[in-house]
């Protein structure tokens, strides 16, 4: 039997079946099959519902729930660890800051002490220097006065010598001194 005759006969059968179906009407609207369909629908759907409700859905839901819990747990744990790490970091920073502050305190204290010492020493030195200056000044004034007196004496002497030379009379040194001081005061 060739393929063509096969197909032709197939088409003929198909046509025959088509006619049959057309005469039989729509299978969906044939009420005789309804009870059987309803029964088996109830049966299969009922079993499926019962299995889903009691077994499968709780299992899947449980697995999803468990995973979600686990992930949330892990996230919690991670955030806990992060918090601990933050705490440690904070503590370290705190310690560092404390140490710094302490170091700064010590430095400031030391500096203050040193400053005080320096100031004291400076004050001591200043006072000594001032004393020495004052002493020197006093000496200078003394020497000045001395020198002035000597100059006056020398002047009086000179004046006496001049007067003796001029008038062959030697004035007393008192008079000469008085005269010099009068002149020097007047000038």
């Amino acid at each position: 039997m060739s393929i063509f005759t096969l197909i032709t006969s197939a088409a003929e059968t198909a046509a025959a079946h088509g006619d049959e179906a057309a005469s039989a009407g729509l299978p969906q609207l044939d009420p005789s099959s309804w009870p059987s369909q309803l029964f088996w629908l109830t049966f299969t759907f009922g079993i499926l519902y019962a299995l889903m409700h009691t077994k499968f859905l709780p299992a899947i839901g449980g697995a999803i729930e468990e995973r979600r819990d686990r992930i949330a747990d892990d996230l919690d744990k991670a955030s806990e660890f992060k918090r601990e790490a933050d705490d440690a970091e904070n503590a370290y920073n705190q310690a560092l800051a404390d140490a710094k502050a302490k170091a700064q305190g010590i430095a400031a204290e030391t500096r203050a002490e040193v400053d005080k010492d320096i100031a004291e020493m400076q004050a001591g030195t200043d006072a000594a220097l001032e004393q020495q200056v004052a002493a020197a000044e006093a000496r200078i004034t003394g020497m000045k006065a001395d020198a002035a007196a000597k100059v006056r004496e020398a002047a009086a002497e000179t004046a006496r010598a001049i007067v003796e030379t001029l008038i062959d009379e030697a004035p007393t040194s008192d008079a000469a001194a008085k005269a010099v001081s009068t002149v020097s005061n007047a000038s």
Binding site: A10, A14, H17, E20, A21, A24, S36, W40
Partner: peptide, 30 residues
């Protein structure tokens, strides 16, 4: 063979079952 377009919807009993006078055969749909 090419089946008619409606033939695929036909309900064909496989195991005839009867419950209290109601036909609940195990069909191709079942």
């Amino acid at each position: 063979r090419a089946a008619g377009p409606m033939e695929q919807f036909e309900i064909l009993p496989i195991i005839a079952l009867d419950f209290a006078g109601v036909d609940i055969s195990f069909t191709n749909s079942s």
